[in-house]
């Protein structure tokens, strides 16, 4: 049986909607199944792996940064890259990165273009596009 290969396009920026969380869950589940996963991050989604993100305290609960252990999206992306190894490819749209000054991505994120998404989709068992609302 040939290896399963999912391609996922993301567009939502961090902390905008539950789409990002669901996408992370889908990617993790696919990797745990042994599938290869290609992610193409477009528009605001290129900020998901931005290394400059800082966790924060929770003034409502009165917890410190350490107590809150706030999960940033860049930590989620790092965890997925660690989980998938060479079975997860994450490509950020280069023009979207430049527009947003978001080049400082976590290790393992590549720079690319919509042409990469086209190639990913061509070779995929299935492609899921998760648009902004």
């Amino acid at each position: 049986m040939s290896e399963k290969n999912l391609t996922i396009a993301l567009m939502d920026p961090p902390y905008e909607s539950a789409n990002s969380t669901t996408a992370f869950r889908i990617i993790a589940a696919a990797l745990r199944r042994g599938f290869r996963v290609n992610v193409f991050a477009y528009e605001g989604a290129v900020c998901l792996p931005l290394k400059d993100q800082s966790p924060h305290a929770n003034p409502v609960k009165g917890t410190t940064v350490e107590e809150e252990d706030h999960p940033t999206t860049s930590k989620f992306v790092s965890a997925l890259l660690a989980l998938g190894g060479d079975r997860l490819t994450w490509v950020n749209c280069g023009l979207c990165v430049d527009e947003r000054g978001a080049a400082n991505a976590v290790e393992g994120v590549r720079r690319g273009s919509p042409a990469d998404f086209f190639k990913m989709a061509e070779g995929a068992t299935n492609t899921l596009v998760i648009p902004t609302k």
């Binding site: 999912l6 669901t22 889908i26 589940a29 696919a30 068992t125 492609t127 899921l128």
Partner: peptide
């Protein structure tokens, strides 16, 4: 759960719409 969703996505001839 998402595990089932992933299995469906991985089937041939499946069109997925978000």
């Amino acid at each position: 759960g998402v595990e089932t969703l992933v299995e469906m996505l991985a089937r041939e001839e499946t069109k997925a719409v978000w």
